[in-house]
Nucleic acid binder design. Structure first.
Lengths: 235, 235
DNA sequence: TAGATTGTTAATCGATTAACAATC
DNA sequence: TAGATTGTTAATCGATTAACAATC
């Protein structure tokens, strides 16, 4: 019986970051690195790095550390980057177009095969040689072209229906840029990019910073000191 | 002395989601909601909702629940959405252009004032009436126009230098789409959107699902049962 | 060999969930 | 009032950090 060690989402989200740092080390011809040195570069604890990696196996060597290239490749395998997937983009507005133009995704095995929209002004246009089709053709295309992944860049109102349709047609995963939490059966993998949430998080942090500064200058005021913040333009 | 209750990043990241769900309730003319009912809609525990909200104050009423509009507005205030910020976009490639066209950010108080790039083919073009300027003009512009926030959609090689420059010129926050972890003094708020990391996370999950399915069909094989997966096209 | 550093177990810390008295 | 549901404390769970024996 296989030990079912469930990997936490926190660990998974850190893997791409390790991969990135190792890629940079590789570019700089660093051949080996210890967990301690990597931890210093990344601003995490060495303990965490070793724990994280040991979820997947022992990639290092006592007294030596980790071989950068080997570890890079192993993490690449864990991330499944040797797989290739057929991808469609659904919703070819500004963001959809931007993603359609990104050739970098192909480096990760995601190959854009089709583009779909409802807007008659867009239908028939091409991006990187791929014609934007009417969304009515999508069912046939997904089935015939063996599409694995859909990138959704749709308005809120349309995403749930399209997500359900794609699920029915056998899609494996959705990279979701629509501001919805798609409720789909768990065999469909959904990865969300909620830009609006991210922006609100930024807004929160800026607001906290602002309130803290106000707090500080109030304290200085109580002490009868002038504010050294006179250079600040607002707030 | 003020109680310094430090809010964890996990809580902060959930606030925009609460805000989104409350906004939808509001649209559907729901006037009150209990933590239990909201928890069912959102797929979290009622306990977590109550704990999260109580980091910021008591917004509900025993026996009644929460007034949707009031809670929506209060969370909006916590998120600092009543503030406005002057924004520039640095790097007007595909993604930068897409973001420049998004009018929705203005609803959250982020007003795009300037666009900057190094590409002479882009400089002089306009998006939504805003001219793309040479990045050499940026220092002057940031200082004179009182720019608070920079959206960075730059290649990896350029982001660190620009991030450092902007910091020097007094920027308050950076919404960073570049695939770098910017190392800046902590008074500069950085919110990262690492699309490549997100894609690799999707890749990981897809890969795990594939391995699990293979595992399952192997087990069936050992039992001498035919695979019911014959409809699956690959893997 | 001696020094370095892993893999891994144990300790700590923090976040989530449960429980319930307070109270609308 | 009785029922419902919050705010909040206590219990549990999980993730991070520390420590160190194993070993290169």
């Amino acid at each position: 019986m296989e030990e079912e060690k469930k990997i936490s989402i926190a660990v998974i989200k850190r893997l791409p970051r390790y991969f990135r740092y190792l890629g940079e080390l590789l570019e700089n011809d660093v051949t080996r690195i210890s967990s301690r040195e990597l931890s210093e570069r990344m601003g995490v604890t060495a303990s965490q790095i070793r724990q994280d990696l040991n979820n997947f196996g022992g990639f290092g060597q006592q007294g030596y550390g980790y071989n950068v290239e080997y570890l890079y490749q192993e993490i690449g395998k864990i991330l499944g980057l040797e797989n290739t997937y057929n991808v469609i983009i659904v919703g070819v507005g500004n963001l959809g177009q931007a993603l359609a133009n990104y050739t970098n995704f192909e480096r990760r095995g995601f190959v854009v095969k089709g583009l779909f929209d409802v807007n008659p002004r867009l239908i028939g246009m091409s991006i990187r040689g791929i014609e934007i089709q009417d969304i009515d053709n999508m069912e046939k295309f997904v089935k015939e072209e063996q599409i694995d992944i859909a990138i959704l860049t749709l308005p809120k109102s349309k995403a749930p229906k399209i997500g359900a349709d794609l699920t029915k047609w056998g899609i494996k995963g959705i990279w979701n840029f629509s501001p919805n939490d798609l409720k789909l059966p768990k065999h469909v993998i959904v990865e969300n990019v909620h830009l609006s949430d991210s922006l609100m998080t930024l807004s929160y942090k800026l607001n906290v910073r602002k309130l803290e500064q106000r707090q500080r200058s109030k304290k200085r005021g109580e002490l009868g000191l002038g504010s050294p913040d006179h250079k600040n333009r607002r707030n």
